[in-house]
């Protein structure tokens, strides 16, 4: 019976462990850059401009997001990049994790964020973007602009690896980079 319990307990732990290892820093490190807009669930536009990668043994990048669901729009501005990750299941996507400041409804507060950017070819209508904040705000990852290859909405570029741009050694875990914040 104890053995059965151990097995039953181990299965979800093993699953969680495999999930935790699903995202890691690409090696050699590469870059992702992009700008554009998505239509959020309210029907409003959210504009973004972002880039990420590795540099000087650390992570590198910048993230801006403006959600026009409110007036004035709520916006996120990154202050520190703490992670740059890939998931082999989504080879065209990269996640950028970090800390930032949100301005919304007259107040400013600090958050952690996780952004997903996905380059699905040119000219960019099938590229995808999403963002998840530690306060619960989320734009689930979705196509830029109106859905469809001709939908417009900007462009995301996944650039080739650059062996001379190095991340932290040893590479931190997904939890260390994103503090448990899930993929948007």
């Amino acid at each position: 019976m104890k053995t059965l319990i151990r097995i039953l307990c181990a299965l979800p732990l093993a699953f969680l462990a495999s999930q935790a290892e699903a995202h890691f820093v690409p090696a050699p490190c590469d870059f992702i850059t992009g700008g554009g807009w998505v239509i959020v669930d309210s029907g409003a536009k959210a504009n973004f401009g972002a880039h990420g990668g590795c540099k000087n043994g650390d992570f590198w990048g910048h993230v801006n997001v403006l959600d026009h669901s409110s007036s004035p729009p709520g916006h996120l501005k990154s202050t520190r990049i703490t992670g740059y990750l890939m998931d082999p299941a989504y080879p065209n996507a990269r996640d950028i994790c970090g800390e930032g400041t949100v301005s919304y409804n007259g107040s400013n507060f600090n958050v952690r964020f996780r952004v997903r950017m996905e380059d699905n070819g040119e000219p960019g209508g099938l590229d995808r973007f999403g963002v998840h904040l530690s306060n619960g705000y989320k734009i689930t990852t979705r196509e830029l602009g109106p859905p469809g290859a001709t939908g417009g909405g900007g462009n995301i570029q996944l650039h080739k690896p650059n062996p001379s741009t190095t991340g932290p050694t040893p590479a931190p875990s997904e939890f260390e980079m994103c503090q448990g914040l899930g993929t948007p």
Binding site: H51, N56, H62, K77, S78, N162, T165
Partner: peptide
């Protein structure tokens, strides 16, 4: 090449 630049 080891020094990408960017801002926002």
């Amino acid at each position: 090449p080891s020094q990408p630049v960017g801002t926002g």
